[in-house]
């Protein structure tokens, strides 16, 4: 124990551990919001949407644009937070109807090429519309400061994220396991043809799912906007993270995505204290281990 404490002096420092746990938790919650839509879209449509990070970026840009347009009062932030993800959902719906619908039955390679092309197209459109300059969104006045946790300051905005993400998780569970629509979506993942034969408009269902997944990406982007720079390239930066989380958790599993996001968040948080030089490798190392032991992810289901 003595050696441990001299090697890792933070072990005896409980306020530090508490704050480190909290910051790992907030990292994890942001990761969950970012990735759960990608997992959902894959679970239902079997498309690995590489443009998921681009939807996230559009959510952040819409948030910045809306806050610029709306009058500068405290309510504007919340209106923008409501509208920006809806804008992304509409974009996702339109893309599904015009493009993705044509490739569901094609080779997965074709689907990847298409969603990869979307990254380039959306990236270029964002540059054309909003220009190359970085943008910044201010936190709402009430959440601009910090609260004290065991005497350590902790940003109050993160409390919003820590509160909202579990709500989203519970909401997703309710929608998919307690509504008729959710039941149809789950049925579609099992047997699309059979569901169609029973008279359900499966195409429309897919559009709705894709728009819903895009809404989640947009929500992630809009909510993260005040804590980052709204900038070109954020699509690629978050895509890798989303990918790691979704692969560890199991493509298509909500609970898996949630657990994986929290594990990756805490792993990063404590990795920094224990192995400062190599901490960025840890999530990828975990992904490699998971792929070796359970290639379908923590809570994913192996395919026949």
């Amino acid at each position: 124990m003595e050696m441990t404490t001299s090697l890792f002096p933070w072990i005896t420092n409980s306020p530090l551990i508490a704050v480190q746990v909290m910051s790992g938790l907030s990292v994890g919650m942001f990761l969950f919001l970012l990735s759960v839509g990608m997992s959902l879209i894959f679970g239902v449509t079997r498309i690995v949407n590489l443009a998921h990070g681009s939807f996230y970026m559009v959510g952040a840009y819409l948030m910045a644009a809306l806050i610029e347009v709306l009058p500068g009062n405290p309510v504007s932030f919340w209106i923008a937070l409501l509208l920006a993800p809806i804008g992304v959902a509409v974009l996702g719906g339109v893309i599904e109807i015009t493009l993705l619908r044509r490739v569901y039955r094609r080779d997965p390679m074709m689907q990847l090429i298409l969603t990869f092309a979307l990254i380039l197209i959306i990236g270029t459109l964002v540059l054309l519309v909003w220009g190359p300059d970085n943008k910044s969104v201010a936190r709402p006045e009430a959440l601009a400061g910090s609260v004290r946790i065991l005497g350590q300051p902790f940003p109050s905005y993160y409390l919003l994220v820590l509160g909202l993400s579990p709500l989203v998780a519970v909401g997703l569970w309710l929608v998919f396991y307690r509504t008729r629509w959710g039941m149809l979506v789950r049925a579609a993942t099992v047997d699309r043809e059979m569901l169609g034969a029973l008279g359900v408009d499966v195409s429309r269902l897919y559009t709705q799912v894709f728009a819903f997944g895009s809404w989640l990406a947009g929500l992630g982007g809009a909510l993260a906007a005040p804590t980052v720079a709204v900038a070109l390239g954020m699509d690629a930066d978050v895509l890798i993270n989303a990918f790691v989380v979704v692969v560890i958790g199991g493509l298509g599993s909500f609970a898996g995505t949630l657990i994986s996001a929290l594990v990756v968040g805490e792993l990063q948080s404590f990795g920094i204290l224990i192995f400062p030089g190599v901490s960025i490798v840890l999530p990828f190392a975990l992904m490699a281990v998971v792929l070796m032991i359970r290639p379908w992810g923590l809570l994913g289901e192996p395919e026949e």
Binding site: S23, T227, I272
Partner: peptide
């Protein structure tokens, strides 16, 4: 994109 653990 998220530096909070480094900050703490």
């Amino acid at each position: 994109t998220d530096h909070s653990p480094y900050i703490t």
